[in-house]
């Protein structure tokens, strides 16, 4: 049930934590705010009836990506003082972002509604999986994405290996 109160609460949390992520000066705290954004976004996705995607969102963004970001911070930050940064306020970026939002809001509010369905009974996990792995369904794109992810992670391991002192980088 798409309740207005639930939507307002979740979207307020999501936008508030995104703004905090951009405005807080400690990078580690910014990571925690990003985690809160990801978790609440998973809540919104759950609320929209896509349970599997909500769980995936939790596992990938709140789990894997959050931990990777914290690891990268641990590798690149030497002292506690380096965690504290300036807010990097930028007028040009603010103009760009608000122009983008203005354009999007104009397009969303003036174009004819896309809503085609009023009643919604969410498909079950079983139906989701059956269509995903059906031969005439999404199995080929799924395998391709798996391949891309494997190649990317192998490349990530290759890039972070120890470089010999004095040797060339390749």
């Amino acid at each position: 049930m798409l309740n207005l109160t639930v939507f307002l609460v979740l979207s307020t949390i999501v936008i508030f934590s995104a703004i905090k992520m951009l405005s807080v000066r400690n990078v580690l705290h910014a990571t925690y705010w990003l985690l809160l954004t990801a978790i609440t976004a998973a809540g919104i996705i759950w609320f929209l009836g896509a349970e599997f995607i909500a769980i995936t969102q939790l596992l990938i963004y709140a789990g894997a990506v959050g931990i990777l970001t914290i690891f990268a911070l641990m590798v690149t930050v030497r002292t506690e003082g380096e965690l504290i940064r300036s807010r990097d306020l930028s007028l040009a970026a603010a103009i760009c972002a608000s122009a983008f939002f203005g354009l999007m809001a104009y397009a969303i509010t003036t174009s004819p509604s896309l809503m085609r369905v009023t009643e919604y009974d969410p498909p079950t996990f079983a139906e989701f999986g059956a269509t995903l792995f059906a031969l005439d369904g999404w199995v080929l794109p799924f395998e391709l994405v798996a391949l891309v992810l494997t190649v990317a992670l192998i490349a990530a391991v290759w890039w972070t290996r120890e470089v010999r002192k004095g040797g060339d980088e390749s």
Binding site: S86, A92, C96, F101
Partner: peptide
């Protein structure tokens, strides 16, 4: 959310951010 992300991507000077 996308506009906030766009703002951060343009303005932040730390690569992690």
């Amino acid at each position: 959310l996308f506009a906030l992300g766009l703002y951060g991507a343009i303005s932040k000077k730390s690569t992690i951010q």
